[in-house]
Amino acid sequence: MLTEIEAKEISSELNRYEQKSASCIEALRVVQRHRGWVSDEAIVDIAEYLEMTPADVDGVATFYNLIFRRPVGTHVLFVCDSVSCWIMGCDKIKNHLTTRLGVNLGKTSKDGSFTILPIACLGTCESSPVLMIDGKTVSNVNTNILDEILTGLQREDTQGKTA
């Protein structure tokens, strides 16, 4: 079932397009914003709401890079691996991340706190290498900066849990 808030957010999109099904991508984004990812049940719910077939909604969901069909960690880290960042050493950043968090690209760390994903050019190539962490762009990254950020996030999380 879509929650009341989800349904309300999706319905506010409907009048922006000529056809109901055009809100499909926005509906997926709404659900993901609330739940972190889009489950099979959510696909069926969205399909019903927009009068589409679940297969059509899933076809759309699986096409786009930023719709998650599997659960992700508390923090999602995107590492730009496109050309300017590659020249400026994004492989080093990638390796530092995977080593420190003990998890491969495309996977979520065991404790469920971090998912690391590759991403295409983040449009900040003049300050490469570039990452995006929880929707924030971090440019001119090096391993020190990365450590600081990760430590900060980990500290926040444990404080959040104990508080």
Binding site: R16, Y17, S21, C24, I25, E26, Y64, I67, A120
Partner: peptide
């Protein structure tokens, strides 16, 4: 005038794929 946020894929920038994306379809 509306702002539409894409869900990410390079091909969406190709103008006819973009139209499909705006219609809520695979781009």
């Amino acid at each position: 005038l509306h702002l539409h946020m894409s869900a990410g894929r390079y091909i969406c920038g190709e103008e006819t794929a973009l139209l499909n994306a705006l219609e809520g379809k695979r781009a």
